[in-house]
Amino acid sequence: MNLYPLGKTLCKTWFSLFTRVTVIGKENIPDDGPVLLCSNHISNMDPPFVGSFMKRRIHFMAKEELFNKRVLGRLLPSLGAFPVKRGVGDRQALRKGLSLLEKGEVLCLFPEGTRSKTGEIGEGLSGSGFFALRSKAEVVPVVIFGPYKPLGKVAVVYGKPMNFQTLRDEKVSAAKATEKIMESIQELKDKHIETVINNE
């Protein structure tokens, strides 16, 4: 059962009614072809928020523990999520992610691997660099501003696609590629933070 369209509609409606949403840079998302979205991570609400205001369907990695829960385990696959084992090199999850990108899908990752308690952007894990280097996907940095409070300001900014072909040609490490991605997310945050804060 494909619950993605319904879930997207419900989430978009909820965010629009109960928070003050700002969306910047939707035009930076390619209309077709493989796309790797790499976002900071501040809340469990990040995945539905990132996807709610995009035309294209997004696939997410989610920690394996969530799929062991009776209800969530059945819902998550129909909402575009697939499991990943944290703290180990999960080859099955890596193959799944690459397969989606090879099919021209959109894959969203949160490179930090866990939520930031301070809101500051931390170091990224090498998985995002792996996907960026091993696929032909357009790599789009994303930054989310919160917190998700009733009637509070919340924003998502989609940056311009990064040019990863040079890094692919240079055969840099996945860790180095991830570092470049995190730098782009930080630059995106620094560029837009005043606009988001002052937007009423």
Rank of each mutant, 00 (worst) to 15 (best):
S78F: 14
P147W: 04
F110S: 02
N199F: 05
F60A: 04
K171Q: 10
L79E: 01
D46R: 07
G127F: 12
A62T: 02
S116C: 06
P30G: 08
I29Y: 10
L101K: 08
R115Q: 10
M61Q: 04
L66T: 07
G159C: 00
K8P: 03
D46L: 07
S39Y: 11
A155E: 01
R57D: 08
I193H: 00
V21I: 11
K153H: 02
M45V: 14
V23T: 12
P34L: 09
V35S: 13
A177G: 12
P150N: 12
N163W: 03
F60T: 01
M162F: 15
A175W: 08
M61C: 02
V88D: 11
L167K: 05
G146E: 06
I121W: 01
G104H: 14
P30E: 06
L72D: 11
V157C: 02
S43A: 14
K117D: 07
F53M: 10
R57N: 11
K103I: 05
P5I: 04
E194Y: 03
E112W: 04
V21P: 06
K149N: 10
I42W: 04
A93I: 03
L36K: 13
A81W: 04
L188M: 00
G113S: 11
L107K: 10
M182N: 09
S184R: 05
A93Y: 08
I42P: 00
E112V: 00
V35L: 14
K180I: 13
V196D: 01
R115M: 09
L37P: 05
H192V: 00
L10I: 15
F130M: 15
K136S: 12
T19L: 14
P147C: 07
A62C: 03
P5N: 01
F67L: 12
I121T: 02
P150C: 13
V21Q: 13
E27M: 03
F82C: 04
Q186R: 14
A174G: 11
G33L: 08
P30A: 09
T9P: 00
M162A: 10
R70K: 15
E194I: 02
E112N: 07
